[in-house]
Amino acid sequence: MTEVAIEVKDLSKKYGEGVQALDGISFEVETGTVFGLLGPNGAGKSTTVKILTTLSHPTSGTASIMGYDVLEHAAEVRRTIGVVAQSSTADREATARENLRLQGQLYRMKGRELEKRIDSLLDSFKLSGDGDRIVRGFSGGMERRLTVAMALVHNPRVLFLDEPTTGLDPEVRSEMWEEISALAADEGTTILLTTHYLEEADMLARNLAIVDQGRIVAEGTPDGLKKELKGDAIQVGLGETREQTEIETALREVNGVSEVILNERTLHARAEDGARSVPSILAALDSAGITADTVTVARPSLDDVYLKYAGRTMEQAEKKQTEEVAA
């Protein structure tokens, strides 16, 4: 039997003015694995992390870390976890070493043991030459590595990574991915990471949950979720805006095509053999008087999984979120 490191049951969170950030989320994370919470900004990932890290209280539901309830045993939870926030939380007026030292002191570490730990962290995060430099002069990647090192100073058994690679350039991002994988593999650290990068969840997480509007809409392994989508993803860019019903009518007679969804001017469909279906799809559209500008055929990705369960692409969900915030 595998041990459960993080257990979340029916978690809901309502903020003051009636904003339902979480609407009954449940999941479990096995010890020593990487679990991904995938979803657009504003889906409820950060709220989940805030509750699990004792920062915020749920409106209802329960959550526990290594058996400690986040409300009743907050002190034990805090000793058990490490947290890497979305942006750097290092003190920019202090040196890397001073940042690590304060962090260690807050976790009741001291003396030689702490200094040795600091040296080894600086070393493994490629900062040994920069330990005594003020963080203000660090590059984005260096500051990010320091932030992760700070979260690890007390050897937490459970690590939370909130959007660990947002805003990093691709090279630094893949370095970060290697470090995260190594942590889980070598140290047996349980990792919960939130991300809106599909490839990140795909690459790192053993299990993942797709979150949309405060609910989990799908859960499983990245491969399992992709396998649920039978066949290839076909996208047709239309020449003009059309109604969903028009498209459905047009494609009703085409064999082997399913899950037809119209998203603005892009038609998404699924076909067992994508390449073979394209000519008949185009012909059917043409005879219905619908112009097609572009066609792509792709193996299923997590983006398609999201589209299937949330009924829109991640990009659109984020755009909508931004518009709501602006309004």
Partner: peptide, 10 residues
């Protein structure tokens, strides 16, 4: 986020 970092520590 520095205050939050302190709040999630013991």
């Amino acid at each position: 986020g520095i205050i939050d970092r302190f709040l999630v520590s013991p």
